[in-house]
């Protein structure tokens, strides 16, 4: 994938995230939260399939933007985004390239990411949600929706990479 394309797609996803939560029919009243993690899942899959270094750099940049724009705690997402992206890509290095496997790895990292955030926010007193309520009300719906998106994204990137590689062999160029 083109390197310049990564930040542009991230920027669009970054701006779609708050709109998603603004118009999401699920909210505090229903007790169900679906938290969009579009930037994170996109960067994790990019790191696994195309370009780890750039994915990590942009994960840091968009982590800082998230911190400043939404949270006013600088350093939280800026730390967790790159770590999550790195963890996913290192785990995928030793595993199969198949989209189901990679999105499974991404899913596990996402679960860990959400649990760590929950732990941090209950530590600093932003929330007093019990772990059970968090698990059923936030973790499961968030992981389910983002996991499905990640699976679709992994299939897309996998077939794209596969095509690129095949076309290289067809031309017969040695690298």
């Amino acid at each position: 994938m083109n390197r310049i394309l990564i930040p542009f797609i991230c920027l669009v996803l970054f701006f779609i995230e708050p709109i998603f939560s603004l118009f999401s029919p699920f909210g505090p009243d229903g007790g169900l939260f679906i938290i969009p993690r579009f930037v994170l899942i996109f960067l994790m899959m990019t790191a696994i399939y195309t370009d780890r270094l750039h994915a990590v750099i942009w994960a840091f940049v968009f982590g800082v933007m998230h911190d400043v724009f939404f949270l006013d705690i600088i350093g939280l997402y800026a730390l967790l985004f790159p770590v999550a992206v790195l963890a996913a890509s290192f785990a995928a290095m030793r595993a199969d390239e198949h989209p189901v496997v990679t999105s499974g790895i991404g899913f596990a990292v996402l679960l860990l990411f959400e649990v760590i955030l929950y732990w941090v926010f209950s530590l600093i007193g932003f929330t007093d949600m019990a772990f059970g309520a968090f698990f059923t009300g936030r973790l499961l719906p968030t992981a389910a929706v983002n996991g499905l998106l990640m699976l679709a994204l992994a299939f897309g990137l996998y077939s794209y990479e596969w095509k690129v590689r095949n076309s290289r062999y067809e031309i017969g160029s040695f690298r």
Binding site: P18, G27, F33, F126
Partner: peptide, 13 residues
């Protein structure tokens, strides 16, 4: 124009 995507703190922009 936006709502904090991770709704730990309920915030609007």
């Amino acid at each position: 124009i936006g709502r904090n995507p991770d709704q730990w703190e309920d915030r609007l922009i």
